[in-house]
């Protein structure tokens, strides 16, 4: 074991990190930050995109990614992050070539619409191709050294509402094909996804709907025996005020008199600080209400019994600098 394996994190031994989350929670950003964090210290990580949105390219501020594993970022202390945007049609041709040596046949199949059929009309097959390509990258070994090519693979996966169906689609196909090459392929993929080398993480916000979806998603994962990972609480804003003040504001008992005196002292309000203090008090009351709701959601998440990681709201949005900041936070908190 080299030094690059010596890590003490919550997910030691996990090599496939599937990152899901409700739309709008920042799933792609968190997946990208996790890939950077995992690569830190000289490791090699593949970040996989499966939905053809080119979200990874946007997050890293790059032109659209081709269907090709290419290096897109360098992690702190010299690790590499590679990215791959999986295109189902290309993956299908890949698959034909890899298992059957049929590259030219693949082109013929494209012409008569077989590939179209597989990737659009029967979208389940599309999911098999995409998950199949991902698990191939997880298992791939360097022919000379016998070592795994990637230390970890991070998948920017479909949203929470579809994640279990997506990961389980191999089983779906397995039910369809009791024997034969698809069944074999599906079994292989399922083997990777259900192994302890995989963790399915959820990105959420401290809001009711994303939290509820996270709980539903985790329950569904547990039912289907897929490995539950961590919960990444994204865009966390500091409470900003001491608890007693928030408490008072929440119950509409916030003392505007003290605020008015302070405002006068700053010169922001000269004669009558009352109206400004009242306006700010309304903001504080709203803020306190939000904090209260957030605390409630946080308690709900804590009851799930899997690690939760706070990620701060980036004031300037998730730009490249922000990604590194998030990656750093993930490492500090033991997620990577």
């Amino acid at each position: 074991m080299g030094t690059r394996d010596a890590r003490d994190t919550d997910w030691d031994g996990v090599r496939l990190h599937v990152v899901s989350g409700k739309g709008g929670t920042g799933k792609t950003t968190v997946a990208a930050a996790l890939a950077l964090a995992l690569a830190a210290g000289g490791r090699k990580v593949l970040l996989v995109e499966v939905e053809g949105r080119q979200g990874i390219a946007q997050v890293f501020d790059l032109p659209p990614l081709p269907y090709e594993e290419r290096k897109i970022a360098v992690a702190p202390d010299g690790g590499d992050v590679y990215a791959l945007a999986i295109d189902p049609e290309a993956a299908m041709l890949d698959y034909l070539e890899m298992f059957y040596g049929m590259k030219r046949m693949g082109k013929a199949l494209t012409r008569i619409g077989v590939v179209d059929f597989a990737t659009t009309i029967a979208p389940g097959l599309r999911d098999v191709l995409v998950t199949g390509k991902t698990s191939e990258a997880v298992r791939r070994r360097d022919p000379r050294t016998g070592r795994r090519v990637y230390d970890a693979v991070v998948m920017d996966a479909p949203p929470t509402g579809r994640i279990v169906r997506f990961l389980n689609v191999t089983q779906e196909v397995a039910g369809l094909a009791r024997v034969g090459p698809i069944r074999h392929h599906a079994d292989l993929v399922r083997g990777v996804f259900t192994s302890p080398e995989t963790a399915v993480h959820f990105v959420t916000l401290l809001e009711e709907m994303p939290v509820q979806e996270t709980l539903d998603g985790i329950a569904e994962l547990r039912e289907t025996k897929l490995p539950v990972g961590g919960i990444f609480i994204n865009m966390v804003r500091p409470a900003g005020l001491p608890d007693p003040v928030l408490e008072a504001a929440f119950h509409k008992r916030f003392d505007t008199a003290e605020l008015a005196v302070g405002l006068k002292a700053t010169g922001l309000a000269e004669r009558d600080a009352g109206p400004l203090a009242e306006a700010l008090a309304r903001e504080i009351a709203e803020h306190a209400q939000r904090v209260e709701l957030e605390n409630r959601e946080r308690r709900t998440l804590a009851s799930v019994g899997t690690p939760c990681y706070d990620l701060p709201l980036l004031p300037d949005g998730a730009d490249l600098a922000g990604l590194y900041e998030l990656a750093d936070t993930l490492r500090t908190r033991g997620a990577a």
Partner: peptide, 12 residues
């Protein structure tokens, strides 16, 4: 001075 006011101003 006025810690409460400065916190409120930061939030604003």
């Amino acid at each position: 001075e006025h810690a409460l006011t400065s916190a409120v101003l930061r939030l604003h």
